[in-house]
C-alpha cells in the first residue's frame, strides 16, 4: 500500500517536473490548442496545448514537443492548475476516457479527467492514459 502510494507520487512528480515550464512568451507564441473537454459543464475542464520548442529539424530529429495541460474547476473563483508532459519527439491527443473507479465517496471529491495521448520517441509511438486532477497528472494503466 505504502509502496504503491510512493510510486504514484514519484510518477506524478516525473510528469510535472520533467519538462521545464515554458515562459508566457513561448506559450503565447507557440502553443497550439489540440483538445479541450471533456464537457463544458464537467466539474473539471481541461485544455491541452501542444508546445514545440523553437528551432529547425536536424535530419529526422525535430525540436521536442510537450503537452501543456491546463485544468480548471467550474465557478466564479475556480482553482486552476497547469501541468506538462515530459518532452518527446511528438505528442498527439487520442481521446478522452473514463476513470476506471467508482464515483468518489468523500464529500467534495471530483472525478479525475482521463485522457489518452500518443507519445512518439525515436520513431516508436505509444498511447498512454493519464488521470488529471487539480493536484497533478498521473499515468494510469
Amino acid at each position: 500500500m505504502m509502496r504503491n502510494a510512493l510510486l504514484a507520487v514519484l510518477a506524478a512528480l516525473t510528469m510535472t517536473a520533467c519538462a521545464h515550464a515554458p515562459s508566457l512568451v513561448q506559450f503565447a507564441n507557440n502553443a497550439e490548442l489540440i483538445a479541450q473537454g471533456p464537457l463544458p459543464t464537467a466539474p473539471l475542464f481541461v485544455r491541452l496545448f501542444r508546445l514545440q520548442a523553437t528551432g529547425e529539424c536536424d535530419g529526422p530529429r525535430c525540436p521536442e514537443v510537450s503537452v501543456q495541460i491546463a485544468v480548471s474547476e467550474l465557478g466564479e473563483y475556480p482553482r486552476q492548475a497547469l501541468f506538462a508532459t515530459p518532452a518527446a519527439d511528438d505528442w498527439q491527443f487520442v481521446e478522452w476516457g473514463e476513470y476506471p473507479r467508482q464515483a468518489p465517496q468523500k464529500e467534495g471529491d471530483v472525478m479525475p479527467v482521463v485522457v489518452a495521448l500518443k507519445a512518439t520517441r525515436h520513431g516508436v509511438s505509444q498511447v498512454r492514459r493519464f488521470a488529471i486532477t487539480l493536484d497533478g497528472v498521473r499515468p494510469i494503466e
Binding site: P40, T41, F45, S72, E73, L74, G75, E76, Y77, P78
Partner: peptide, 13 residues
C-alpha cells in the same frame, strides 16, 4: 459578464 468558467454561462447560477 462573469468569470470565464462561471456557472452563470451554464444556467447554474
Amino acid at each position: 459578464v462573469h468569470s470565464p468558467r462561471s456557472f452563470h454561462y451554464h444556467g447554474q447560477a
